[in-house]
Amino acid sequence: MSRVLAADTMPIRSEGDIVGVRQLVRQHGAAAELSLVEQTKLVTAASELARNTLLHGGGGKVEVESVEEDRRRTIRLSFIDSGPGIEDVELALTDGYTTAGGLGLGLGGTRRLAGEFEIDSVPGEGTTVTVRFHTRVRG
């Protein structure tokens, strides 16, 4: 039995939106009573992925959803763009790999922060990166 506690969608079109995504995701994390460290990881992951969507995907949107099932809460973030896509996903996940002149920690680093990490990319069509953070509901 799962229950959706909250669901939001937000466009990512500018750098200001990255800050907006952080704030939205922080609200979800606080409502799900994530520990401080988990919350920090969640918001940091959101920030990294939102910037990826903007810089590599040419903008897009994020879906944020908090779900409760079997005394466990899950926050799902999906970053969706219709940009050029990623040719070699494994390579893109390697630390230090960068096409935008950054540190190249965006994807690989985010994978280490999240409980679950999925990437779905079709060259020429776009990329969807989904991360999930889990927390147990305190009895």
């Binding site: 460290v37 920090t40 990881k41 940091t44 630390d95 920690l105 680093g109 985010t110 280490r112 922060l113």
Partner: peptide, 14 residues
Amino acid sequence: MRPAVAITLVELGL
């Protein structure tokens, strides 16, 4: 730097 920030940066690989 806050502890949670430091832990996150280490996990991130920075």
